[in-house]
């Protein structure tokens, strides 16, 4: 028997399941023993209901600096211009 994480991975890897309509997916044999939380999440089309099974955490998604040319360089004296001394690359956004 697959648990919810295994089932999610199985859905993600199966072309027939990945884009199935929610009503078809919840009736699929692969989900015969799926948890109520997963079935609700499928019907609602998002993962909010999975919080009932896994809990919820706020995940920060941004992984780059949003004020380039200042915080991605060494600390500067107060009042320095926020201009980089060299061209910024993709790794210094």
């Amino acid at each position: 028997m697959l648990d919810t994480l295994d089932t999610l991975e199985a859905i993600g890897q199966d072309a027939g399941l990945r884009y199935a309509a929610p009503e078809d997916l919840t009736e699929a044999s692969a989900l015969a023993e799926a948890s109520d939380a997963l079935k609700t999440a499928i019907r609602e089309g998002n993962g909010l209901a999975l919080a009932n099974e896994f809990g919820s955490r706020v995940m920060q998604l941004v992984q780059v600096n949003l004020s380039p040319g200042r915080e991605d360089e060494e600390p500067e004296e107060e009042g320095d211009e926020p201009e980089p001394s060299r061209p910024t690359g993709p790794d210094s956004l």
């Binding site: 994480l5 999975l50 896994f54």
Partner: peptide, 20 residues
């Protein structure tokens, strides 16, 4: 991006350390 994804990772390795 998602705590479920993090838990999925934990299935692949016993020592997954979140940076969150």
């Amino acid at each position: 991006s998602d705590n479920v994804v993090e838990m999925w990772l934990e299935r692949m390795h016993p020592d997954v350390r979140s940076l969150q």
